[in-house]
Design a protein around this nucleic acid. Structure first.
Ligand code: ZN
Ligand code: ZN
Ligand code: ZN
Ligand code: ZN
Lengths: 134, 134
DNA sequence: AACACTGTGTAATAATATAACATTAATATA
DNA sequence: TATATTAATGTTATATTATTACACAGTGTT
């Protein structure tokens, strides 16, 4: 691995699990991940959860809290900001990561009544996707 | 109960569970609720989850998704909009419902790349509360 | 009465996540 | 190199969160 790179190289388990999630067209649940990587030698839930925790921590994946599921990030800025936004279709469960400069700027600057600012947030929008609306 | 009221009167189980959550200074988890209402005759998880589902549906309580916990709503508008925002302290776990006209207006009007608008959303901000910052 | 709808009670089980402990690999620094 | 330190792994067991399935009771409608 290139020592010049700041990026944290993934370990074997992390890479296996990231690749699986990254390939998946939809958010994956932990035990579905476990089932899918058992042939690669990952046998126990904890091995999955540990890799997931790390991948979330370094911003390679995000957890969709309302669904207890994980998707790969395709928006490099999340890795720094820990500021995430998703749209979720309530019929087909399609999840899309929203990357809107306006939205993230608005939320990063949002102050509550006490003047408190929060750099970290998670936003989940719900509605019907294009396909399910027709 | 007053027949004139549109408001749905709570059933016995719903009322017991709502009262408990409403009194609680912090979000309550389902099995903690169960433990606390067993002396009132609610014996099984399902009885709790059914009441919680209904209370969430009618907007009397909200689920804090990142914590799997429930708090009472003190903001009448949520009941209609199903649009919720919270601030969560990462140290003491204090949770506060944010009611900001500006924020809810911004989010209710937010359009994604496809021009899609979402009337329903859940936003969780993370940071340190006043007490934990000092 | 027959039906639909909502809520209840109970038991069993599914799905999600963590604790505890032993071991090994990678990294740092002396 | 040696050694301390940190991070990751493997394994078993267990805790926590949530749902399925089935029987039944109350309410309102036709
Ligand atoms: Zn992202
Ligand atoms: Zn859809
Ligand atoms: Zn509310
Ligand atoms: Zn705090």
């Amino acid at each position: 691995m290139n020592k010049m790179q700041k990026e944290h190289a993934l370990t074997k388990n992390q890479q296996i699990i990231f690749d699986l999630i990254d390939k998946s067209p939809e958010p994956m649940k932990a035990y579905s991940i476990l089932f899918n990587v058992q042939k690669k030698g990952i046998k126990a839930p904890l091995q999955v959860y540990r890799a997931l925790d790390k991948l979330v921590e370094i911003g390679k994946i995000h957890k969709i809290e309302s669904r207890n599921a994980f998707i790969a990030c395709h928006n490099s800025s999340c890795q720094v900001a820990k500021a995430t936004a998703f749209s979720i279709c309530e019929i087909c469960e399609k999840v899309t990561e929203i990357s809107s400069a306006g939205l993230s700027k608005y939320l990063a600057n949002f102050k509550d009544k006490d003047g408190m600012k929060y750099s970290k947030y998670n936003l989940e929008f719900f509605g019907l996707c294009k396909k399910c609306r027709t």
